[in-house]
Design a protein around this nucleic acid. Structure first.
Lengths: 150, 150
DNA sequence: AGTGTGAGTTCCTTGAGGGAACCCCGATTG
DNA sequence: CAATCGGGGTTCCCTCAAGGAACTCACACT
């Protein structure tokens, strides 16, 4: 086995990596999010090898993150996010937030996010679904869950 | 060039991938978070090749995500998260949340998170730092930022 | 018939990941 | 003092995935 398969680990992070952990995959999702939904658009935008792009798109469709949908009489397709895929964008937003904070440098962030609800240019923060307070890695204790390996 | 370098793209997601996008890297961070801070511990826990683990740890130290710190008179070291590294865990928490939701199956999530502030087993949600309302990918509009490429 | 375009396939080369063996250094043991 | 041990890596070889360019196919338009 060349690349280790993470899907079998009893760890939701490893399993998520099994779906979106390969090189390029998060950027493909970003492109779909940003409106580049067709093969040629994504390939041109990213400069990714066509072979690899084919593999990544197929993998994401198989895993239910994207849906391949015809948009013409001719054999033309576009890729759209499923509900599962839309939720994955939370991960991308967290990545973008971290990159904006630590890697943007002098120039500032390349992309801004306007929140529809309040209309402001804003950022995301992680909060507890229970009490609504800030909830980051230092604010939690890790416990064995029901799906833990013995 | 074998693996395309994402660091030069005007995209915070791509830049973040340049730091933690290589295979195994998120799992290494997860291990450090979970208390596996030494080379042998991480290697045994993940089953990662020693060569690759060396490369990943060095890369994370170079990028300021981890700090290599001696813990003995003998040449023994442990890896600890910097502030920059701790903030990266937000991304892992988002990944874990998604994996718990979509990939855990019958068995349920392998790990539970107890929030110190409220004491409850909980999950994270993304919220707007401005107005505090829910803020996911569908709730935002993407705009060019100051660091956007022309 | 000839051209164009989107969406892939095919083929070759290179280099990264896997795996196992090996090495170095300081501490402990006989 | 020599031998052993254990943490923390290096070195080496092999395989397979990423890069890149060329090629294919199906349909529409001229």
């Amino acid at each position: 086995m060349q690349r280790t398969n993470f899907g079998g680990m009893a760890c939701s992070i490893a399993r998520t990596l099994d779906v979106v952990g390969e090189p390029w995959t998060p950027l493909v999702l970003r492109d779909v999010w940003a409106g580049f939904t067709r093969f040629e658009q994504i390939q041109a935008d990213l400069g990714i090898s066509r072979k690899v792009l084919t593999e990544r798109l197929n993998h994401l469709v198989e895993r239910g993150v994207l849906e391949r949908r015809p948009y013409d009489q001719r054999p033309r397709y576009e890729y759209v996010l499923t509900d599962k895929g839309v939720e994955l964008l939370d991960v991308l937003m967290a990545m973008a937030t971290w990159g904006d904070h630590w890697l943007a440098g002098e120039a500032g962030p390349p992309v801004l996010y306007r929140h529809h609800a309040c209309g402001e240019i804003s950022k995301v923060d992680l909060r507890c679904t229970h009490c609504g307070e800030s909830m980051h890695a230092c604010d939690v204790e890790l416990l064995q869950g029901p799906g833990a390996a013995v």
